[in-house]
């Protein structure tokens, strides 16, 4: 049987489909990709359904090899460093991984999350209708945990492509991460007008202690007009809650389904991935939009996923020695988005 082998993996490498939907009412987190656009794009480039299971790559990095046959891969990891048997490849690449060859993906100058989709199907059993990994509750993926060295992912329905690597040309992935659009609410009435203004004006610095559950913001603390405890209500992905210390927390893919802090605003769907990609220490600002504007942005993002993916042959270029020397260090890279 053909299998994709995890030869090495840093922390935070998981299998994700588009998320576990339908069980929020029972306290089951949706999980799914931190950057939904990149995840869908990788699947599109691999010729899969947009919601298919793919490997989510953290800055921990991963090393992949193929067993039992060649596997076509689409790797979308903007800002990451990618190499096939030591030869550098673009961070948006279609490549056929033949048995015995090794693909290395490590953190580069930018970007927190990348995606690797196979041309075919990663054959892991869905749990509650989804393969999305939620490590906190031990659901989905491979035994509900992150991937680690020695794991073998069986691949069905493999389709072969060109053996030579190709650069994937997708201009829509060049997004501006510095301005994150939000819709105010649902509990913006827990804040006075000057605090809403202060929230929107920022600036906010992304804390390095974020993970798949939440993105923590550092800056001037906000004050509450009506206290910081509410009776629990539902939590959307992208909800920005403000706990007692006044520092906003953006709730991401692994968030809990309900929560008890006032939520001043909600990051719009198309900007969730942009926010997820920002590394710790970087500054962002928020911009208020209407629901109608957010829906228009969502529609534009959906439409872009139906545009053709252009492919260019890869010309071997950079072989900087520090890069080559660093290739086999991937297993020891520390976690985090810093």
């Amino acid at each position: 049987m053909t299998a994709l082998v995890i030869a090495a993996a840093g922390p935070g490498i998981t299998l994700q489909d588009s998320g576990r939907n339908g069980y929020l009412r029972y306290g089951i987190t949706a999980a799914g990709p931190m950057d939904p656009l990149l995840h869908a794009t990788a699947n599109r480039a691999a010729g899969n359904a947009l919601d298919a299971t793919a490997i989510e790559i953290s800055t921990g990095g991963v090393t992949l090899s193929a067993e039992g046959g060649a596997i076509g891969l689409a790797l979308i990891a903007p800002g990451f460093r990618v190499a096939l048997d030591g030869a550098a490849l673009p961070d948006r690449t279609a490549v056929t991984l033949e048995a015995g060859r090794t693909l290395v993906v490590r953190a580069g100058d930018a970007g927190s999350w990348g995606y690797c989709a196979v041309s075919g199907r990663i054959a892991v059993a869905p749990v509650l209708g989804s393969t999305a990994t939620h490590t906190r509750s031990g659901l989905g993926g491979l035994d509900g945990r992150g991937l680690s060295a020695g794991d073998r992912l069986p691949v069905d329905e493999t389709r072969s492509g060109d053996v030579a690597p190709q650069r994937l040309v997708m201009p829509w992935l060049d997004r501006d991460p510095r301005v994150i659009r939000v819709v105010l609410g649902p509990q913006d009435d827990y804040f006075a007008a000057d605090q809403i203004d202060a929230f929107l004006a920022g600036p906010w610095t992304i804390s390095p202690r974020g993970d798949r559950m939440a993105c923590f913001l550092d800056g001037t603390p906000l004050t509450h007009a009506k206290g910081h405890d509410i009776v629990s209500d539902g939590v959307a992905m992208g909800a920005i809650q403000v706990p007692g210390n006044g520092l906003p927390i953006v709730l991401m893919a692994d968030r809990q389904s309900t929560g008890g802090y006032p939520k001043i605003a909600t990051v719009i769907g198309p900007d969730l991935g942009r926010l997820a990609q920002v590394r710790g220490g970087a500054r962002i600002a928020f911009r208020q939009v209407t629901v109608a504007e957010a829906v228009a942005a969502r529609r534009a993002e959906r439409d872009v996923l139906h545009e053709p993916v252009a492919r260019e042959p890869v010309v071997r270029t950079d072989f900087a020695s520090d890069f080559l020397l660093g290739l086999n260090l991937v297993g020891g890279v520390a976690d985090g988005r810093a």
Partner: peptide, 22 residues
């Protein structure tokens, strides 16, 4: 309409705004 999440005091409705208009 994708999910209904009842809580003590509210019902949260998750929906696909490209299918179901607000």
């Amino acid at each position: 309409l994708r999910e209904r999440v009842p809580t003590y005091r509210s019902l949260m409705l998750h929906y696909d705004p490209l299918v179901l208009d607000r």
